[in-house]
Design a binder for these strands. Sequence first.
DNA 1: CCCTTGATGCGCT
DNA 2: GCGCATCAAGGGA
Length: 213
Amino acid sequence: MIAAPDRTPLPREFFDRPVLEVAPDLLGRVLVRNSPDGPIALRLTEVEAYAGEADPGSHAYRGRTARNDVMFGPPGHAYVYFTYGMWHCLNFVCGPEGIASGVLVRAGEVLEGADLARTRRLSARNDKELAKGPARLATALDVDRALNGADLCAGPEAPLTVLAGTPTDPDLVKTGPRTGVGGEGSVHPWRFWEANDPTVSPYRAHTPRRRRT
DNA sequence: CCCTTGATGCGCT
DNA sequence: GCGCATCAAGGGA
């Protein structure tokens, strides 16, 4: 028998730790998105750590700007950015404050609200694909820049919350280089996922693309 | 399955 | 202007 997931929201102290400690600990936790259309609960299966201004793969690498501002703020908040002209990606800001670290939420398994998620992800061929990839996940959960800076620790009825869930067995946590991160940023195994989980996104190496003429 | 390419807005140099 | 923490469709094997 499987223990019921813990519905207790994670406290701010959870996020107020070094990002490389928080990232693997997020696997198996349950992200709840309360949107005007209804709630969706997502069990996290894949994340990536972005570790401060010294990390060349991080948006914080070139210092504080209007875009990455919330990364420099207190832990336990959402950092949402817009990329490739059409997609959003969701991060959890981690501590300590001022280090500008975050965890990119890359994939998960929809536990509740699959009907709603399907209406936002019409191209998904099956439910495993609803949140297989960071932009798909944000689309399924209706996450956009309106949620940038949202407090993850404001309670279970807040727009975004992370419940304790059932942490993934550490023996099942796999690590590898981050997807789509090139150069110096690719040397660290800062991608974390749950072994044998069908909702984890495929790894893709960094591929520079030339703009259309 | 694999690989290639187009779509699309904007932050930053 | 360049390049991006991406996705979906299309064609070949």
